Computed example of a mutant assay.
Amino acid sequence: MPLTGQAARALIELRARIFTGRLRAGDRLAEIPLAEALGMSRTPIRLALSALQSEGLAVPAPGGGFAVRAFTVREVDDAVALRGQLEGMAARLVAEHGVSRGLSRRLHEALDQGDAALARGVLDEEALDAYGAMNTALHAAIAEAAGNAPLSRAIAAVEALPFASASALVPSPGSAPQRHRLLTFAHQQHHLLVEALEAGQGTRAEALAREHADNARRNLRLILDSGEAEGLAALITFSDAVA
């Protein structure tokens, strides 16, 4: 279940601090100092730290609590590439099996939610919450509908690697309108993917899912080259970002 409200904001901000090096490998993630720094209670911090562990960004620390896990850019890049391969396989299987009415309803509900989040024209906390929840739901629906248990387990394992999850948010360079255009383009890919699934176009669906992940890898390099990190207002969905 995606985090919302203050817990989601805490998770996004902590991801950004890890990604930009403000929190470094081995740094302790203590609830009280983080709650004070982010201006919120310990409960959303606790939920965010648990989510960071699930995403492979935090590890248990000696004596309790968590610490930032060490990882490399290559590890992130490889993990996202692998997720693209696996989700491409899932998309092909769904297209070949046929999209049921129930799945079609779930996919179109997700598309509508993404459209509504982007229609506001600003990427504030509410819009990011809505888009992130939509993105997670859409990717999960496709993986589940593939009907392949080993594949689902493989996708889940990859999503436990740093920044490889479909719901991960990271800083993006550029102005606010540019960031909005990036997400709009990414969501257009969602529409094209659902269109291919419902048309039974397995090869096209697989290619679109892989391209979706390849865009994320290009955006990672763009972010690193820019050196820009602006916090929550500059965050977009890494798994959906484009160069």
Results as ranks from 00 to 15, higher is better:
Asp115Gly: 06
Asp115Val: 05
Gly132Cys: 06
Leu151Lys: 05
Tyr131Ala: 05
Pro150Leu: 10
Ala140Ser: 12
Leu128Val: 04
Gly132Ala: 08
Ala119Asn: 06
Asn148Glu: 08
Gln113Lys: 15
Leu128Phe: 04
Pro150Arg: 10
Asn135Asp: 08
Ala154Glu: 09
Leu138Asp: 01
Ala141Lys: 03
Leu111Ile: 08
Glu126Phe: 02
Leu151Ser: 06
Arg153Leu: 11
Ala110Asp: 03
Glu144Tyr: 14
Ala140Lys: 07
Asp124Phe: 00
Ala154Lys: 15
Arg153His: 14
Gly132Trp: 01
Ala145Arg: 00
Ala140Pro: 10
Gln113Ser: 15
Ala141Ile: 07
Asp112Pro: 02
Pro150Tyr: 10
Tyr131Ser: 04
Ala117Ser: 01
Leu123Arg: 04
Tyr131Trp: 13
Asp129Pro: 02
Gly147Ala: 13
Pro150Lys: 09
Val158Tyr: 02
His139Gly: 10
Ile155Asp: 00
Tyr131Met: 07
Met134Glu: 00
Val158Ile: 07
Leu128Trp: 02
Ala137Trp: 14
Ala127Cys: 11
Ala117Gln: 00
Gly147Ile: 02
Glu144Pro: 12
Ala149Thr: 14
Glu125Arg: 02
Ala116Thr: 13
Glu144Val: 13
His139Ser: 09
Thr136Leu: 11
Ala146Glu: 03
Leu123Phe: 10
Arg120Asp: 06
Leu123Gly: 04
Ala119Tyr: 05
Ala154His: 15
Gly147Asn: 13
Gly132Phe: 03
Ala156His: 08
Ala119Gly: 05
Asn135His: 13
Ala140Asn: 12
Asp112Trp: 01
Asp112Lys: 02
Ala149Ile: 08
Ala141Gly: 07
Arg153Phe: 11
Ala117Cys: 04
Ala156Phe: 06
Ala149His: 15
Leu111Phe: 05
Leu123Pro: 02
Leu138Arg: 04
Leu123Cys: 09
Gly147Lys: 14
Ala141Val: 05
His139Thr: 07
Val158Met: 05
Ala140Trp: 05
His139Trp: 11
Met134Val: 00
Asn135Arg: 11
Val122Asn: 12
Tyr131His: 08
Ala127His: 03
Asp124Val: 00
Ala154Leu: 11
Pro150Gly: 11
Ala156Val: 05
Leu123Asp: 01
Glu144Met: 14
Thr136Gly: 12
Ala141Leu: 05
Asp129Glu: 06
Ala143His: 09
Gly114Asp: 03
Ala110Thr: 03
Ala154Trp: 15
Arg153Cys: 09
Ala117Asn: 00
Arg120Gly: 08
Ala157Val: 09
Ala146Lys: 02
Gly132Ile: 06
Leu111Tyr: 06
